[in-house]
Amino acid sequence: MSEKLTVGISDWKICGSPDSLVTYALGSCVGICLYDKNSRIAGLAHIMLPDSTAITGGAATRAKFADTAIVDMIDAMKAKGANITALTAKIAGGAVMFQSASAQFNIGERNVEAVRKKLAELRIPIVAADTGCNYGRTVTFFADNGALEVNSASKGRSMI
């Protein structure tokens, strides 16, 4: 029997085959899925903010930020036996939920940019992405084969 583990907002989890990871209703947040296909170890992070170094308060929660969540999740995947030099990434979310002239509401775009930058720095290739636009996404990541299912209220279901 495979288990489906739920990842909350500002949280990450890892699992091995045949289990899967789900996170609900990514809006401006980004879901980062990392996978090592040989060990079939998967990780899913649901980050809210781009950069832990850019803010003054509340920075202790490392799972909240793209930069800190990614490195912590990689450490946990390594400890579980993943080959971290072989990791690939799939990302989803980072929508602009509200159209506004004010840059503070474009947090989705900034989140995607920060995730791409951190993954590039760690030399982890992004093999699939479904980001931006203006709608929320629920994603399920399968450790068995690294497939990512994306569901949205307006666009339905797709596999990337």
């Binding site: 907002i9 500002s10 609900y24 209703a25 990514l26 809006g27 401006s28 947040c29 809210m48 903010l49 803010i55 003054t56 308060g57 509340g58 202790a60 929660t61 909240k64 929508a95 939920m97 509200f98 159209q99 506004s100 503070q104 509401f105 947090i107 989140n111 203006n134 709608y135 929320g136 996404r137 629920t138 949205s152 209220a153 307006s154």
Partner: peptide, 25 residues
């Protein structure tokens, strides 16, 4: 100016959460 979005509740609340999240958990 008000802004409207019709979508999943969690996706909508991610926006105020991200704004408050810069200062608080």
């Amino acid at each position: 100016i008000p802004m409207l979005s019709i979508d999943m509740l969690g996706a909508i609340m991610s926006v105020p959460a991200a704004q408050m999240g810069e200062l608080s958990d």
